[in-house]
Design a protein around this nucleic acid. Structure first.
Lengths: 186, 186
DNA sequence: GCTTCGAACTTTAGAGTTGAAGTCTTCAGG
DNA sequence: CCTGAAGACTTCAACTCTAAAGTTCGAAGC
């Protein structure tokens, strides 16, 4: 069996601190405090998505499907949206939405039918089964989220929520949502 | 031209507050404070990724390529890593890494060569051009990040960084990185 | 030294996405 | 009416990722 090898191949996954130190070494103008916030935010979000993915998988749901269910639930009763609107909210192209709805309709999570009042439009509607799946996933997610924030007291939670919301408002104002397509994940 | 239509099709993109209100309506047990933190975090990260994507695009770089550049820079001089190691750090399968390296080598951002000391291994190395691209992207990113945090004073930045890092540590400890594959984006 | 096992990467087939072109429907004008 | 223009969705080809083989090389056993 080959040794663990020292041939410039492992070097162990860098911790957040090591990552920031490396950036500073290569780019002197970097503000370490800013980078700490940004990098922690990105890593945290990434790990959370992994966790959500595992949870929804236990329900036989992909993360992609969960996104659709969430959008429909947020839209409120009667839980109907058009493919185009869904695509915009999820940051996908309409083409991708078409196929995703195909799959979900086959699984019975949503129905797809033409709007008889305006036959150009299509209406995607959550089924009872889809709504139930969303609820199950939500139960799992809320347990995970509560556990994640466990070490933060009420004041800290409030403060964190406020600060993040302020930052969010800043980005949303700055970006007039010129289409709102997201490009990749981190 | 069809009217803006009232046929259950638009309903305007929901704000963060509206989204949380909708969740509460459908799932009584939800803690609105927890949800505020989680939802703001996710939306913020998403918008940031859109912004990063636009910036790197102006440099002729995809977000995917930028991820590779970052990993190589963080690894430090001589900026070498194997495909397998890169794949693990980016949360991709080795197969995907093979193709991504193909593309980037064609563009001259990295080189790929067999390790002559151990011919099973392959060494991916950052080129000078790749390093320069990273630097340009980093300059853009740091401006954006500084602007994003502009409204936060030093104490707030510090606190935010600390709290996020605490949360990150909690997730990383809880998930023994059972492979570290990430499943989807939000 | 030949064989076997394991490690690291690549190849292949299939799912899912994008961007561009195509279809169908509605509305406005002549 | 009949035609033209625009909107909403779908179809098609090219690309990227995953999962599962396949290939190549190195190390250990007999």
């Amino acid at each position: 069996m080959p040794e663990p090898s020292d041939a410039a191949a492992d070097a162990a996954e860098p911790s957040l601190e090591e990552q920031i130190a490396a950036y500073q070494r290569e780019f002197q103008d970097l503000d370490p405090q800013v980078e700490q916030v940004v990098s922690a935010l990105q890593r945290l979000n990434r790990r959370m998505n992994v966790a959500y993915g595992r949870q929804t998988a236990t329900l036989g749901l992909s993360n992609a499907e969960w996104e659709v269910l969430k959008a429909l639930v947020v839209s409120g009763a009667p839980y109907q949206l058009g493919p185009g609107e869904l695509a915009k909210r999820l940051g996908l192209t309409p083409a991708a939405m078409t196929h995703r709805i195909d799959r979900m309709a086959n699984e019975g999570l949503v129905t797809r039918e033409r709007d008889e009042a305006n036959r150009v439009r299509v209406i995607v509607e959550l089924t009872d089964e889809g709504r139930e799946k969303w609820l199950e996933a939500m139960r799992l997610a809320s347990v995970f989220e509560e556990d994640l924030l466990q070490d933060l007291n009420g004041a800290e939670r409030h403060l964190l929520g406020q600060v993040l919301t302020r930052l969010l408002r800043r980005v949303e104002d700055a970006q007039p949502d010129a289409d709102g397509r997201l490009s990749d994940l981190d």
